[in-house]
């Protein structure tokens, strides 16, 4: 065996054991991460914190909790979704920020001095949510394929900004109900019941779309497309009854309680789904985005609690 002179021999191009660390976070992605983490923190706070008690009124308490949780879910979910979209359009910051704003406004609703600022924030969130629907619709239509299944699956989620608008509306609704009494209050309850009931049906449509995208590969994926719409329909029916006929709606109440329970249960299922992605939680930077959305199921709790509030008012303020 001969030894040859080689210009290449012995060249060590690079040590193959670089220090630990990954490629730097950059551009909008960095801010997105910050928002994401802040959002998750706020969301946790919202769930844990007892809202400032205006009055020991179970309806208002449920309404406020629901509006807060819904806003928190929207905030975290849109922060993650828009992070996945690299915040390529600055307008994408608006959604999560509006959700955070309305969540705080609802949380701190008892502070009299800031009531009008809070109302403005909640109104703005409603408007931004409605505009978001337009943005998302445009995003879907401008892609090749237009209004196609694949764009509905993977382009901007068509109904998601509606949840932001709803969080604003529920916050405003809580303010209104705090000031209403008697028959007026019951009428508010009926309207609230209608809004929440319809929202549950729309939300179900969105869940059905996304779980269809996931091919309903786990039978549990059928649960959130059966119980919430049943609860929504029952709530709408309850609201349609004559106001004089105050009575208990046991089925609607049970379904709403179950729907509220789907928030934490669904979150657990989604956490399991994330663990089934390649690399699981150790690969969280990918799995959290490509797996099932962790913050999404909480929105069912956020809708069910105002639904219970509405039902209570429809029933004539009867305590359980």
């Amino acid at each position: 065996m001969v030894q040859y002179r080689s210009p290449c021999r012995g060249s060590r191009v690079r040590r193959p054991d670089p220090p630990h660390g990954t490629a730097g976070v950059r551009d909008g992605a960095g801010l997105g991460t910050v928002l994401l983490l802040a959002g998750l923190g706020l969301f946790a706070g919202a769930v844990l914190a007892e809202p400032a008690p205006v009055a020991p009124d179970p309806s208002l308490r449920n309404l406020r909790r629901g509006a807060t949780i819904l806003a928190g879910s929207v905030m975290a979910d849109s922060a993650m979704e828009h992070f996945q979209g690299s915040y390529h359009n600055p307008a994408m910051y608006v959604g999560p920020m509006a959700a955070a704003g309305t969540m705080l406004a609802t949380l701190r609703g008892g502070d009299r001095n800031r009531a009008s600022a809070a109302r403005t924030m909640q109104g703005a969130a409603t408007m931004i949510g409605l505009m978001g629907l337009g943005f998302h619709g445009y995003n879907i239509l401008k892609r090749p394929g237009g209004l196609s299944w694949n764009n509905l699956f993977y382009a901007a989620p068509v109904g998601a900004p509606g949840a932001l608008a709803l969080a604003g509306v529920l916050g405003l609704g809580e303010r209104r109900m705090a000031g209403s009494r008697g028959p007026e209050r019951r009428e508010d309850g009926r309207i609230l019941g209608g809004v929440v009931g319809a929202s549950l049906l729309v939300t179900t449509a969105e869940i059905a779309l996304l779980h269809f995208r996931g091919a309903f590969h786990n039978p549990a994926m059928f649960v959130p497309v059966t119980i919430p719409p049943a609860a929504g329909a029952a709530l709408c029916l309850a609201g349609l009854r004559r106001p004089e006929a105050a009575r208990r709606h046991r089925l609607a109440r049970a379904l709403l309680h179950l729907t509220a329970l789907l928030g934490p249960v669904g979150t657990a299922f989604h956490a399991f789904g994330v663990s089934r992605e390649m690399g699981g939680w150790a690969n969280w930077r990918q799995s959290l985005l490509s797996g099932p959305p962790m913050p999404a199921p909480a929105s069912l709790t956020g809708l069910a609690l105002p639904g219970l509030a509405a039902l209570r008012e429809i029933e004539g303020g009867m305590d359980e």
Binding site: P144, G145, N150, F153, Y154, F212, R213, G214, A215, H217
Partner: peptide, 27 residues
């Protein structure tokens, strides 16, 4: 049995070309 995957940028090039020429495309 399962839904189509998202179409990546390379696939959307085909989609844009097909739509410009008036022929169908698919994931």
């Amino acid at each position: 049995p399962y839904r189509a995957h998202p179409v990546n940028a390379a696939g959307l090039v085909l989609a844009r070309g097909a739509e410009a020429l008036g022929v169908p495309w698919s994931p």
